[in-house]
Simulated assay, not measured.
Amino acid sequence: MGETTKPGLDGVIAAAKQAPGRGLPPVHLWNPAHCGEIDIVIRKDGTWFHEGTPIGREALVRLFSTVLRKDPDGFHLVTPVEKMKITVEDAPFIATRVDAEDGALKFMTNVGDEVVAGPENAIRVEMDEASGEPRPYLHVRRGLEALIARPVFYELVELAQERQTPQGPQLGVESNGAWFPVGPAGAHQL
């Protein structure tokens, strides 16, 4: 996508730019009447594509991420006047960094969000049925999650401590007063 934008994207860009500072637009309060689809895909690796071409402008991807909303029928870019459905292959964001500070785990996403894991922003790990590999996620905001990048997940495993759970001994990490398992009970003993 070059320096120009398609007509359907102009409203999204204008709405996102109205957010004060790094604040997020109140997309959860917007209920526009006009709905449609736009050919934007967020791939599993976190790359955003428009009409089959990667969106190379990082600032534009960050802008779009601020007006992203997850509804029961899928993911949408939302403005006060329109709501356009997009495709998300896995999670819309990637957690690319973690720092352990003062009993909390602070994550950075590929779109510039800083998220402290805790009761409001849980870490969850699913096991891929086909490969048996862990698929770790972090809640970012309002149902939107970040896939935790593999190197970041390895850091979490290094920080993990064993706890006794009703399912047996389990490795997990603590952040902001909440404890999160990083794998199934007993998996670290195999």
Results as ranks from 00 to 15, higher is better:
residue 4 T to F: 02
residue 5 T to R: 01
residue 6 K to P: 05
residue 6 K to L: 05
residue 7 P to I: 03
residue 7 P to N: 01
residue 9 L to S: 03
residue 10 D to E: 15
residue 14 A to C: 03
residue 17 K to M: 13
residue 18 Q to H: 06
residue 22 R to N: 13
residue 23 G to A: 14
residue 24 L to D: 02
residue 26 P to V: 13
residue 26 P to A: 15
residue 29 L to V: 10
residue 30 W to H: 00
residue 31 N to L: 09
residue 33 A to H: 06
residue 33 A to F: 10
residue 38 I to F: 03
residue 39 D to Y: 01
residue 40 I to M: 01
residue 42 I to G: 03
residue 43 R to S: 08
residue 44 K to D: 11
residue 44 K to Q: 13
residue 49 F to M: 11
residue 50 H to M: 04
residue 51 E to Y: 08
residue 57 R to V: 12
residue 59 A to R: 02
residue 61 V to T: 02
residue 61 V to N: 01
residue 71 D to T: 14
residue 73 D to L: 13
residue 74 G to C: 10
residue 76 H to M: 05
residue 78 V to H: 01
residue 83 K to M: 08
residue 84 M to Q: 00
residue 85 K to G: 05
residue 88 V to L: 07
residue 94 I to Y: 01
residue 95 A to V: 09
residue 104 A to T: 09
residue 108 M to L: 15
residue 109 T to L: 07
residue 110 N to R: 06
residue 112 G to T: 05
residue 113 D to T: 07
residue 116 V to L: 11
residue 116 V to D: 01
residue 119 P to D: 15
residue 119 P to Y: 13
residue 119 P to W: 11
residue 120 E to G: 07
residue 125 V to D: 00
residue 125 V to N: 05
residue 126 E to Q: 15
residue 126 E to T: 13
residue 129 E to Y: 11
residue 130 A to V: 15
residue 133 E to K: 14
residue 134 P to M: 09
residue 136 P to A: 09
residue 136 P to M: 10
residue 137 Y to G: 04
residue 138 L to P: 03
residue 146 A to S: 09
residue 147 L to A: 11
residue 147 L to P: 00
residue 149 A to T: 06
residue 150 R to W: 14
residue 150 R to I: 11
residue 151 P to H: 10
residue 155 E to P: 02
residue 158 E to W: 14
residue 160 A to S: 15
residue 163 R to G: 12
residue 164 Q to F: 09
residue 165 T to S: 13
residue 168 G to H: 11
residue 174 E to V: 09
residue 175 S to F: 08
residue 181 P to V: 05
residue 181 P to H: 00
residue 181 P to R: 02
residue 185 A to H: 00
residue 187 A to C: 00
residue 187 A to R: 04
residue 187 A to Q: 03
residue 188 H to K: 06
residue 189 Q to V: 05
